[in-house]
């Protein structure tokens, strides 16, 4: 695709902005900013990838992955304002997920150990883990609020936070995994996944593209489960304070 062709795609942004102006959605600014950011970020990444792939050296690949990891941690931990130390818990969760899944992919020689494979697959794993971690923190707090009477009953019976919070942990892990499971279920029926579409447009054999897509989807399932469990286990007891009271119960003090 040439740059001139690419320039024409600005028309799509214009359509969205016209709708925004017409309906007074007041989203023109956001639309313009996101369009520019998206284009700049991707172009920069494209050139960086070109350099990294050309060098084909491990330190650069590792650096790229670390960068993705940091941005993902920063983004997901914003969801956990009520969870003290959310950022390091999310960092552990996403980090462990990347190490385990990527370790299996490379260790079992499922994909070759070259930047062309490691970086894009890491991007998908870390991106998915980021969404799952954010969702988990959000659900954990919402569930604790919804079940506060039951939690207080457990506490009054002398349950430790690990025992009183178990139901909340289970519900939050479940809720954070459902989107990944559902999208895996309907994949191919509702939408063709981005990576597969990309490969097919670029001229790859559809069967080959499908194989890679299955690999990715299975990896993402494992990634979601590892992230949700790790962040959940590290976070759920911090819903309680040192006196084993529900933290927000104390802050609100009804």
């Amino acid at each position: 695709m040439s740059l001139v062709t690419l320039a024409w795609t600005v028309a799509f942004i214009v359509i969205a902005m016209v709708i925004s102006l017409w309906q007074k959605l007041n989203l023109e600014r956001d639309l313009a900013i996101s369009a520019i950011r998206c284009a700049v970020q991707l172009l920069v990444v494209g050139y960086i990838l070109k350099v990294v792939f050309g060098l084909s050296r491990w330190p650069f690949t590792t650096l790229m992955v670390m960068l993705m990891w940091s941005v993902a941690v920063w983004n997901a931990s914003r969801r956990g304002r009520a969870v003290p130390g959310a950022w390091w818990k999310v960092a552990c969760g996403i980090g462990l997920t990347e190490v385990v899944t990527q370790g299996l992919l490379l260790g079992l020689r499922i994909v070759p150990a070259t930047p062309q494979y490691v970086i894009p697959i890491s991007g998908m794993i870390i991106g998915n883990a980021m969404v799952v971690a954010g969702l988990l923190l959000d659900r954990l707090q919402a569930q604790a609020r919804a079940q506060r009477d039951e939690i207080r009953t457990w506490l009054a019976l002398g349950a430790r936070p690990t025992q009183a919070g178990r139901g909340v942990l289970r519900a939050a892990v479940r809720a954070s995994l459902i989107p990944t499971i559902d999208s895996t279920k309907t994949t191919g029926l509702v939408q063709l996944p981005g990576m597969m579409t990309g490969q097919i447009i670029a001229g790859a054999d559809p069967i080959q593209a499908v194989r890679y897509q299955v690999l990715i989807l299975f990896t993402l399932l494992a990634a979601a489960a590892i992230t949700a469990m790790t962040v959940g286990l590290l976070s759920y007891t911090s819903l309680f304070n040192a006196y084993e009271q529900l933290r927000f119960d104390v802050e609100l003090h009804r």
Binding site: L155, A156, G158, A159, R160, E244
Partner: peptide, 8 residues
């Protein structure tokens, strides 16, 4: 007190 023991 250990809270769980107190509440027991």
């Amino acid at each position: 007190w250990r809270p769980s023991e107190l509440r027991r």
